[in-house]
Write a protein that binds this DNA or RNA. Structure first.
Lengths: 127, 127
DNA sequence: ATCAATAACGATAATCGTTACTGTTATTAT
DNA sequence: ATAATAACAGTAACGATTATCGTTATTGAT
């Protein structure tokens, strides 16, 4: 069960953390193929699952595919309803939301996901 | 392009609106088969897409499948990290969120999705 | 009421993102 | 070095959803 180091996992994480475009697995794969020509798509998915499960990265479902974010600090996103891309929003985290909703609730609240829908600045200008 | 009435669509909507368990397409299908033995899964998906696109119902992606909600009034949900079910939370809608995030943003914000993660009241008690 | 136009249907095949399997390779502790 | 096994590459399988296609049902006009 002990996790072993792998060069592939390190390079996947490095690549994801060096970009801010929240790529899909496939978009990451195309880019990583240049540095790791033998990389298998299964390896990529396996590592993205591992990294998001242990909280190192974030995973979002947009449109048909999942998108990944190497920045796991609490922040919010906008999904553009036109181009389906995922963008960061500049806003302080609303840490109080979890407590607000937890009061009076019999279950347990660990975290929240806040996603806005609309048009990104590029699509908004080209309507 | 004009929408025509269909008995199937009416019964799909009635069934969904009469329950509060946010079923997947497949769960709806199993139930609807009793009243509409000839219902095709394609018809169900086609109508769920039409109804969610025109805002009559809501669609959420949880786990591997989409879940649907016949109550389209703004309200929030909890996804249980143990049983993967989707529950309604009792809390007034935060209509101010869209405006809060829209100020200073160059794109356009139409709506938001706020989902909490944690344990539902049943799983929380049986830990 | 009949008829033409076409939205919607049922049945089924195809799509595609993701996961599982299998034999091989690389990491790690002894 | 060596043994144990996590992780790999390659590929097959899976499953939710979508597309296709010939047929049926709704609708508006005659």
């Amino acid at each position: 069960m002990a996790t072993k180091y792998s060069r592939q996992r390190e390079m996947i994480l490095n690549n994801l953390c060096s970009r801010t475009d929240h790529p899909t697995a496939d978009e990451l794969y195309i880019d990583l193929k240049e540095e790791l020509p033998n990389l298998s798509l299964g390896t990529l998915y396996r590592n993205l699952a591992m990294l998001s499960e242990n909280g190192t990265i974030l995973k979002f479902h947009c449109g048909t595919a999942d998108r990944f974010d190497g920045n796991n600090n609490l922040h919010y996103h906008l999904i553009c309803e036109k181009c389906n891309r995922l963008y960061d929003l500049e806003h302080a985290p609303l840490t109080e939301l979890d407590n607000m909703f937890a009061s009076g609730y019999k279950g347990k609240i660990n975290s929240h996901l806040l996603v806005f829908y609309g048009l990104c600045e590029y699509c908004n200008c080209s309507v």
